[in-house]
Amino acid sequence: MSEHPLRNIPQVVVYPTRDTAVASFYPFKGVFYFLRHPYLYPLLRARLLPAVLLSSFVLLNLFFWTFLPQVAFLAIFHKAGSAWVNGTFLVLGEGAAIVALLFEAFLVDESQVDIFDAVLVDRGYEDLVRQFRPVSEDSLNNPVRRLGKPTQASVYGPFSFRQIAEFVILLPLNFVPYAGVPLFLLLTGYRAGPLQHWRYFKMRGFDKKQRNAFARKRRFQYTWYGAIYLLLQLVPVLSMLFLLTAAASSALWAADLETQRRAHEATAVQVPDYADDPQEAA
């Protein structure tokens, strides 16, 4: 007798929808985690002043010189006030691209690595971190202080020219009334999401084929995660803070994925305590 189609609904619809919703909440979990764990604050303070000054400089100039011309152009295609809304997101997106280029290339990556590693240590996955740096047993209440200097090249997320190019190319989607901004975030989030787990993939020893397979299996989860991550990057001045909390969120997600993986492996290798001898049973 064939299996009833309705029995597949949980596997096909319910579970994937649940997993996607959970993944999209991780960027916010990262913010809450960062705020509730003061041991991460020194990593923010070291970057705070230059971040605020540079973000403010970039956004003020963009709004002063480009906002009204872009709104005027959008008004050709938009009705009523939607040109102002989409124009605001367009300028914020341009600012986010510039800030990301400057911060991630020159200021943030080392701090993101430290945050990612510290969160994994805090969650009990020191073995992953020790592949790239020593982890001491001192300062047990402060995972950041337990981290030694990296023993090999450590990158949180590689510079992706393709991601930046897609970001710029897709910016005109903001010309589309109402639906343009969500489409822009989802399409750029498709690539941004997996890049946030670059360090986790390195810790797992994945090659390019394995990375792509892992991300493809979680395509919608990474897309929505990336979309929310990019949405937070559009918040004026605070984009630097959210770059750092993103490292915490990706580490929290990696820790949960690792918990699931190890639990699955432990279950798979379990051997029954007792098995009947077939000859005796006969």
Rank of each mutant, 00 (worst) to 15 (best):
R47V: 10
R123N: 09
N141M: 14
E166V: 13
L241H: 03
R162E: 14
V14L: 14
F63L: 03
R45A: 15
N174L: 14
P158L: 11
E110D: 15
A21K: 03
F201N: 06
E94M: 15
F214V: 03
F103L: 01
F64L: 15
A255T: 07
V108P: 02
L53Y: 08
A75E: 11
Q221V: 01
A275F: 11
V235I: 09
A100R: 09
Q70I: 15
G93K: 00
K208D: 15
F201E: 02
V271R: 14
Y222F: 12
L257E: 15
P143W: 02
D114A: 13
G180K: 00
G193S: 05
N8P: 05
H197A: 13
L107W: 06
E137A: 13
H37F: 09
V144M: 02
A192P: 08
V237C: 05
I164L: 12
K29G: 13
F103W: 02
E104C: 00
V12G: 10
L257F: 10
A72K: 13
V91M: 09
K209G: 09
L241Q: 00
P177A: 01
L53I: 06
F57G: 15
E265W: 05
S139I: 10
D19C: 01
S111D: 11
R145Y: 08
R133S: 00
P177K: 02
Q152A: 14
F73Q: 11
A247W: 02
S239C: 06
Q163P: 09
Q131S: 10
P236W: 04
A248E: 07
M1Q: 11
V31C: 04
I9N: 14
V269K: 12
S55T: 01
P177M: 04
G87R: 00
S239H: 04
D122L: 06
A282F: 11
Y41A: 14
Y229R: 03
D138M: 09
R130K: 12
P69I: 02
Q11S: 10
A72F: 07
F132G: 07
P42F: 04
Y200E: 12
L62N: 05
F28Y: 12
R47W: 05
A266Y: 03
